[in-house]
Computed example of a mutant assay.
Amino acid sequence: MNKKCAAALSGGAVLVMALSGCTSDDDDNKVDDWAKSVCDQVQPQLKKISDANTSIQKQTADNSRPADVQRTDSAAFQQISDAYRAMGAAVEKAGAPPVEGGEATQKAAAKELKESSTAYAGLKKQVDGLDTKDQAKFADGLKGVAEELSEISKSGDQALQKLQSGEVGKAMAKQPGCQKPGATNSASPSSKT
């Protein structure tokens, strides 16, 4: 059950890490400045998401007790929720990117990041409510959390894809702050069965 949860969490983190998906030599200073202002705020949040994912993977590998799994997952979901909220605030604070349709793109991306934050906070609440004294109930509850997590990670990433497209995406791809943290490879934990 926990491996499914870790795999889905990894998928959610990939949604945000996708900001580094494009490359280009375009040197529009205004767009680069905008991208830098966002990416400088995004990098610490990407690290928090990566660290949360690592903590879930570690406790999955350790075959931890239900109470430990609950504690770890709850803390990880809170950390991810906070990170998404901070990224949404960074996108809002940066203002509209200086490109055609920039304001709509910025608002959509900020809204989606905040919705992701709310969704992860909901998962934390759901994990906190699981019965850790009954192994079977806990496993069933965790399965439900994993399924919901999978839906969250699949849900509308169109705003972020739009944000990372065109000139803005090219500028963001050049910013170190929008690169994946550490050298955490993109192999999902689902490959560990």
Score class of each variant (00 low, 15 high):
residue 51 D to M: 07
residue 77 F to T: 04
residue 26 D to I: 13
residue 69 V to L: 07
residue 78 Q to F: 04
residue 61 A to V: 08
residue 39 C to W: 08
residue 39 C to A: 09
residue 59 Q to H: 09
residue 24 S to K: 08
residue 35 A to E: 08
residue 23 T to G: 15
residue 63 N to A: 12
residue 52 A to M: 06
residue 55 S to V: 04
residue 74 S to K: 08
residue 81 S to W: 01
residue 69 V to N: 01
residue 36 K to I: 10
residue 85 R to F: 11
residue 57 Q to W: 03
residue 56 I to H: 03
residue 24 S to A: 13
residue 69 V to Y: 05
residue 35 A to L: 06
residue 31 V to C: 14
residue 80 I to F: 04
residue 47 K to F: 05
residue 32 D to I: 06
residue 71 R to A: 10
residue 45 Q to V: 09
residue 30 K to N: 15
residue 58 K to P: 02
residue 67 A to H: 04
residue 33 D to F: 11
residue 61 A to C: 06
residue 69 V to G: 01
residue 27 D to W: 06
residue 62 D to G: 05
residue 25 D to L: 12
residue 28 D to I: 11
residue 38 V to R: 03
residue 55 S to A: 15
residue 73 D to F: 04
residue 40 D to Y: 00
residue 67 A to Y: 00
residue 59 Q to W: 04
residue 58 K to D: 14
residue 41 Q to C: 07
residue 83 A to P: 01
residue 37 S to W: 06
residue 53 N to K: 06
residue 66 P to S: 04
residue 74 S to H: 05
residue 59 Q to C: 09
residue 43 Q to I: 00
residue 71 R to E: 06
residue 85 R to Q: 13
residue 43 Q to D: 09
residue 39 C to T: 08
residue 63 N to E: 12
residue 76 A to H: 04
residue 26 D to W: 05
residue 82 D to Y: 05
residue 30 K to G: 15
residue 74 S to N: 06
residue 82 D to G: 09
residue 27 D to I: 14
residue 59 Q to P: 00
residue 43 Q to M: 08
